[in-house]
Amino acid sequence: MRLDRTELWLLASGVVLALGVFVLPNWLTFLLTIAFAKGLVVQGVVVQMRAGLVSFGQGLYYCIGGYTVGMGGQWLGVHDAFVLLALSMVAAAVVAMVLGLLLTRYREIFFAMLTLAFSMILYGVLAKSQSLGSTDGFNVHGITALGWTPGSSGKMFVYVLTCGIAAVAAVFLHRLSKSSVGYVCEAIRENEVRVEYLGASPRWTLYSTYVLAAAVSALGGGLTGMATGHVDPEMAYWTTSGEFVFIALLGGIGHVAAPFVAASLFSTVRTYAIQFVPHSWQMILGFVLLGIIIFLPKGLWSLFKRTRKAEARV
């Protein structure tokens, strides 16, 4: 497997950031851990956006990832970070394989609404589950790695782990975007009818992309659970998913590193905004979002401009 320039650059950034654990203050590594973990969830949103689908329910897989890590430790006695993350991905992929069968029949706002509804179902279930701590959720602790117990340096370990996973995921997603599937997804966004007439199944392509996006997002959820030491149903609430859509639009779909950069920016601004203008944070987000839509139409417009004529005139 040969690496191209972007891929080398992504891996190098991952290594440099991970080495930052020795010099960066704790608050910053924690902020970056959360940002990159969220960035992974956003990657899931972006992969679907490339294919023209906007998921307003990616929180579903974020939450599944987090809860799998939490429950694995609590009930299965699994504490190894790698095993837990693998379980998260599997759990998310299994759920996505089932829901994807239905979801890939829908496009546009129907897809958005249905993804939202599914994540709210999970929220509804978790919020009423006494044994899972209802709306308070529960704590995640005792993470180990291949037999090693990080103990008090747990947060630092999760940071390094997150940097590593984010870098590897970025390389993988970069490959994906340059692969046949990546281009076919773009082609589906621009002209689904033609893709069908070229002999491919848009639905199957979207299905596999959906499952993949779920697995990547679950990684983000699992890492967040480990980093914060806590999971709660709020992870599946629709406003959480809205945040992911926001970050995805902020970064755009042009570059594989964009979700991570956007998520870092988002987390940093939020940290300060909540401190200095506590009741204007969302308002800032709202105006920024409108600004992106109005002033950066190129990146966004192309996203949603599907060839209507194609459907009408075939």
Partner: peptide, 21 residues
């Protein structure tokens, strides 16, 4: 005249603004 899904996102931005307002 914008795409329906884009209108969803625009009104989502509006929701964020109004919530804080």
């Amino acid at each position: 005249g914008k795409d329906e899904i884009l209108m969803v996102i625009i009104t989502y931005a509006l929701l964020l603004i109004l919530e804080d307002a």
